[in-house]
């Protein structure tokens, strides 16, 4: 395979990284809000959150992407396919992260929360300063593997016409008749990004050791 082809793949993987990164950030933020909703005693908050998580974890991402991509224009939102793709990935990963974080929030020791309560924290201060950091740290390994999962799943946005890594490999494969080389190279690039993310995850874990050896 020529360098030109490989460079085209590398360039396209930039879009893969960008799409995944945005989806991961939106997904984590939204996931945090949704998991807080799931744990709320208020049924008006917890029910929709639960349905959200159940739906987006229960439907194949491919179907979600097709649905969002085709539904948005019907709702009068003519957005570029990249936006639909990012929206789909974000919603899906938010559901998974919400479920992960829910477990983390439930594992925050009660006494630590009581101590903050005694110190006069208001509920939202307690949430952001105490509950979130501890739940985040407790669930970090699961959060990182979900982030890697979404990187791999981002290959599915190729079906709604976003020319990221997989779509680029597909286009080049059909024009050069070298599918073996191109898909293997694409796979290699995914692997490389994957390792990079895993490395970042380990770095983050080390930073959040909080004094533990």
């Amino acid at each position: 395979m020529s360098w030109t082809l490989f460079l085209l793949l590398v360039k396209a993987s930039g879009l893969t990284v960008a799409i995944s990164a945005i989806a991961i950030v939106i997904g984590l933020t939204l996931g945090m809000v949704v998991s807080a909703g799931m744990l709320s005693p208020n049924l008006l908050l917890s029910m929709p959150s639960r349905v959200f998580v159940s739906f987006f974890r229960g439907v194949p991402l491919l179907v979600q992407l097709l649905l969002i991509y085709n539904l948005l224009p019907l709702l009068g939102l003519n957005v570029p396919s990249v936006v639909a793709a990012v929206a789909g990935l974000s919603l899906c990963t938010a559901a998974y992260q919400a479920e992960n974080l829910r477990g983390g929030f439930l594992s925050v020791p009660r006494g630590v929360v009581e101590a903050a309560d005694m110190a006069g924290f208001r509920p939202f201060q307690l949430f952001w300063r105490i509950r979130v950091p501890i739940a985040f740290k407790l669930t970090l390994p699961a959060l990182v593997s979900e982030a890697i999962m979404i990187l791999k799943s981002s290959s599915l946005v190729s079906v709604v016409g976003v020319v990221e890594l997989t779509r680029m490999a597909q286009d080049l494969a059909s024009s050069t008749y070298k599918p073996l080389d191109l898909y293997a190279a694409a796979g290699g690039l995914y692997l490389a990004i994957n390792w990079l993310m895993a490395g970042l995850g380990r770095l983050l874990e080390r930073r959040l050791r909080w004094g533990r050896a």
């Binding site: 791999k152 799943s153 981002s154 290959s155 599915l156 190729s158 997989t166 490999a169 597909q170 494969a173 599918p179 073996l180 898909y183 293997a184 694409a186 796979g187 995914y190 692997l191 994957n194 390792w195």
Partner: peptide, 21 residues
Amino acid sequence: LLRGTPFLVQLFLLYFGGPFI
């Protein structure tokens, strides 16, 4: 390798690349 790459890419490799081997 299988866990680090997208399922879709694996399928493409098998389905479109397979005939070449």
